[in-house]
Write a protein that binds this DNA or RNA. Structure first.
Lengths: 126, 126
DNA sequence: TATAACCTTTACGTTAACGTCAATACTAAT
DNA sequence: ATTAGTATTGACGTTAACGTAAAGGTTATA
């Protein structure tokens, strides 16, 4: 597409997923692309939403959770329902994310060690 | 259990999962608990393995991938098969982990903003 | 204008990671 | 020795996140 508009396979190509997956995200309400007739047309905004979806996936959230977050993210400032309840959940998420960051650190240093062992093994067999 | 030994529900309780899940991990070869008769007995080492399993899960790996990693982790130094091939995969994993760490950072600062909006909304309605 | 290369919906299939029985066995304490 | 509380092994069920195949519209371009 010429304009700042994308077809479904444009985005599928860019983000390394299938058109089916993108349609699936739309079915669940994660994306709301425009239409030219029957054909989906994705805007730059849709693309950014998709980026957020994939980030959420990498962080281990379900598509349903991701939908909640997107709805929050794009809600007008006054439109947050039950903010006090949300504050608690925010704390839980923060705790999980901090632990996840530790997990990433451990995994990275584990990779270091494993890589050393690999190289050591290669030197010996050379 | 008195000694440094745990029953299946000890571990289930400690790690907030079900006995069934733990048996499932054993079926897939992630755990190899001892037995007293027919009853499973988990050592401190088994417990550490389980900890690694859960860390792997949080990082988004499948149980099958986690098994691979455990097998690598507990392999004797010489027992690493195809080290040169492994080096490439290590790089891929490292890249994914670095991106994940960025994702965590973005998510954390997003939570900050969301929390601010919550608090602002609460002040106004007070 | 024909035709290849896309797009659409509909609907059933697949896989991972367990959940949930059921039937049975063991174990600890009374 | 009896009984309450766990444990064990099947074996089938469930859910999320798509895959895949069928049948048919659309669009770009030669």
């Amino acid at each position: 597409m010429s304009d700042g508009q994308f077809t479904i396979s444009d985005l599928a190509g860019e983000f390394a997923l299938t058109p089916r997956a993108i349609r699936h995200y739309e079915e669940l309400g994660l994306l709301h692309p425009g239409r030219r007739g029957t054909v989906r047309l994705f805007s730059e905004g849709d693309r950014k939403r998709l980026r957020l979806v994939l980030r959420g996936k990498r962080l281990g959230f379900s598509l349903e959770q991701i939908k909640e977050m997107l709805d929050l993210h794009y809600a007008r400032p006054g439109e947050i329902a039950a903010p006090e309840a949300l504050l608690g959940r925010i704390e839980d998420h923060r705790a999980a994310l901090l632990r996840l960051r530790e997990d990433v650190g451990m995994a990275l240093s584990w990779l270091e060690i494993l890589e050393e062992r690999c190289r050591g093994h290669l030197k010996k067999s050379a």
